[in-house]
Design a protein around this nucleic acid. Structure first.
Lengths: 204, 204, 204, 204
DNA sequence: TTTTAAGCGAGACGGTACGTCGTGTCTTGTT
DNA sequence: AACAAGACACGACGTACCGTCTCGCTTAAAA
């Protein structure tokens, strides 16, 4: 009843082929070199078929990056959320360290760095989508982080009145900064960060 | 001696005109819409004159952003480095708060947000320049931050063995993240961040 | 059957508009000043539409000159072929004279001289097309000439074993030479030429 | 006395180097591809040095073609004028045939055809120089031809009142036509032409 | 001598056109 | 309707030459 399905139905394979082609080209050449023309060609699809489904390059990339075809963030794949390493550890700073170590490992993979860069470029282009894009991208990791910190509060390790959002911003920001600036993430610094934040949040 | 100046020398005015035109167009339309053609036209210069001096749009933007024609970072203008608010305050967390407040104020100016976005886009495009670009961009602010933190260490407010680099990464990363994600910076969160970090770094 | 017409068909109006624009610009400024850019603009067509149909300026000019949009030769318009002056005259040298007079009249028109020059320039540029271009250009006139000479043979005025091709070469060559060298064609010389050739071809 | 020779005198070697470079490039790539930039580079000379001496590409080519650096016509090199084959023969048609055979031989050399084409292109470009260019180019051969025909008149072989200019036009025009249209010159036709013209000019 | 005037190599400069590429839209015929 | 194919107007790309204009330097005649 919602929308009458008249005429020839859209080919669902096309969506997948387009997103897959987008991913491949993105990893090969980067966001700027990516063209809708090339996506259509690689996907074996007419250009119009792409335009019929997405309004802009930024949106295609957003779906390709966030839609499960790619690792969805520097914090881990969406489907890996439940198996975050360190969750449930008895000591808080170990959990934080483990999370940051996992992030560091992901960022040592060039593929993931490319994805982060593509996302930044897409967000820079599309004024109104930037917030949506970043929040979608960082959401899974953020949920993990906050869960982890809240567990610390409940255990009594961390202050009850701590601003966990601010801490999460600092952590994810530091990781994002590292990725964008293409500085190889240094585990010692991340450990120090975990320690400082833990100390700052610690219950007295 | 080094390299004989042969032939007609380059017109120094052209450099300035090009960078100024780049700045104006960048603020008006954003990085993606910026074209070298338009830069040349606005600068009153032949296209070839631009190509003779810069190899890519990313490099022009880098120079325009970093070369003193624009505020050189979300942390403050290069020429404002000495007048950083709060420097020399007697209490550490006040200094940190003041610095973050200044950053927040800068990011509430759409102009500066545009610059940060342009920088992210330029860095995403140019693989090898990204590090150079980000470090040049964040360097002034980073120097301020570290000076501020070191002063705290010397006063005895902060731990002598604290990893100040890690703290600076967290702070600048958080601010960058906020800017890129286009979330209006919220002063309360920044204050919390200052507090947490201070607590974590505090001498016992 | 041959080749399935797939995709959007080409706009036939564009062809005409392009050739017409080419003709106008050619007559106004000459071959060297002619640019594909200007052709496209005057034709109200995108540059790419021109490049999609012709591989070079020389080819466009060839089609513009030969395609019926211009007088197709210094010997007469294609559609004037049947009304060649003098055809059917009872005396051979009069026919030849009339033909040469017509050629002289055409070459006293600056437009036609411009066309001949454009043709020479286009032929000079395009190695392999030169033969095609010249033969297409001179074919109509040559047909007239040969018909005229053959009529003379049949009437018994001219030798049966005369090399009419050689005579036609001499006549067309002389006219072409005159046109290219931009020497105003002198009727007396042309008359002399007709007389000499007639005398040389005459049946004894 | 007229123009005081003040300042540094022009380097005569440059003229030669420029014309030589022009010739080489012309033969290699043709008139259209020839650029003043390339000439200067190949000649080892600054662009301005070329512009100081010649006002246009057409003029440089004219001098290069006519100035003794190249065979100066399809009828023979300037310095070969005196040794024209067949001159002084006892029978007129043999002289004419010999002259045309020599022309045919020259046009079977691709170099000379290229030169003729370059000349035609240069003449097409430069409105006012065309006459000068063609007459300079064809003058040596024309002199030979007319001398040859006049000798026939004096011997009594040819009519005293014959229009020798018209005959020369026909001959040179036929040869030029052949060269430009890039039709391999056919000796039989040229022989026929000689015969027809001789017969037409013959004293009764 | 010292000036003055021009030539010269080098190369920047404002232009203009090149031929290509990608955009997003628009016909075609076919499914 | 969607789709593959491909034409289309548009506009930018990066390059090549145009003809002119500084530069620093050289070369000779005039002062």
């Amino acid at each position: 009843m919602t929308t009458r399905t008249r005429g020839r139905p859209r080919n669902a394979d096309a969506d997948r082929a387009i997103l897959e082609a987008t991913r491949d080209l993105l990893l090969a050449d980067g966001y700027e070199q990516l063209t809708i023309q090339a996506i259509a060609e690689l996907a074996g699809v007419a250009k119009q078929t792409v335009y019929r489904r997405w309004p802009s390059k930024a949106r295609i990339v957003a779906d390709a990056v966030l839609g499960g075809y790619l690792s969805t963030g520097f914090e881990g794949r969406a489907d890996a959320a439940s198996s975050t390493p360190g969750m449930g550890s008895s000591r808080e700073p170990d959990d934080l360290r483990a999370w940051l170590h996992a992030a560091a490992i992901q960022l040592s993979d060039a593929t993931n760095v490319t994805i982060v860069r593509a996302l930044a470029a897409a967000a820079a282009e599309s004024e109104e989508d930037a917030t949506r894009l970043y929040s979608a991208f960082t959401e899974p990791g953020r949920r993990q982080l906050l869960a982890l910190l809240r567990a610390g509060v409940e255990r009594g390790d961390l202050r009850a009145d701590a601003d966990l959002e601010a801490a999460a911003d600092a952590i994810q920001g530091a990781v994002l900064y590292t990725a964008l600036a293409r500085r190889p993430p240094q585990v010692e610094h991340l450990d120090s960060l975990a320690d400082v934040l833990f100390a700052g949040l610690e219950a007295r």
